[in-house]
C-alpha cells in the first residue's frame, strides 16, 4: 500500500463522483461513472483485493456503463433537475 498513490486515486474518485452527479447530459454522466468505477477498480487492486478489483472492472466499468447507456438511449438524454 502506497499512501501517495491512494491519495491521488481517492481525490480523482471524489472528483468523478461529484462530476457524474452534476453532469446535465446523462450520457456523459454514464461515461464519467464508468471512469469512477475504473478508479475504484485501481484502488481495490492497489489495496490487494484483486478479486474485488476484477469484479469492479468487469461489472462496474464494463457492463453497468453499457446498461446506463442503453437506458439513456431508450429514455431521455437531459435531466430535468
Amino acid at each position: 500500500m502506497i499512501w501517495q498513490f491512494d491519495l491521488i486515486i481517492l481525490i480523482l474518485v471524489a472528483i468523478t463522483a461529484i462530476a457524474s452527479i452534476n453532469a446535465k447530459d446523462l450520457m456523459s454522466a454514464a461515461i464519467i461513472f464508468g471512469t469512477f468505477s475504473f478508479l475504484m477498480c485501481l484502488l481495490w487492486a492497489e489495496m490487494g483485493a484483486v478479486d474485488v478489483g476484477f469484479t469492479e472492472a468487469a461489472v462496474g466499468a464494463g457492463v453497468s456503463t453499457i446498461f446506463f447507456i442503453a437506458a439513456v438511449f431508450r429514455t431521455t438524454r437531459r435531466t430535468k433537475d
Binding site: 478479486d51 468487469a58 464494463g62 457492463v63
Partner: peptide, 17 residues
C-alpha cells in the same frame, strides 16, 4: 488465480453484448 464464476460470467455476457 483471481476470478471465478461471477467475473467469468460477466466477461462471457459482455462478449455477447
Amino acid at each position: 488465480s483471481p476470478g471465478g464464476g461471477f467475473q467469468g460470467g460477466v466477461i462471457l455476457g459482455a462478449s455477447f453484448i
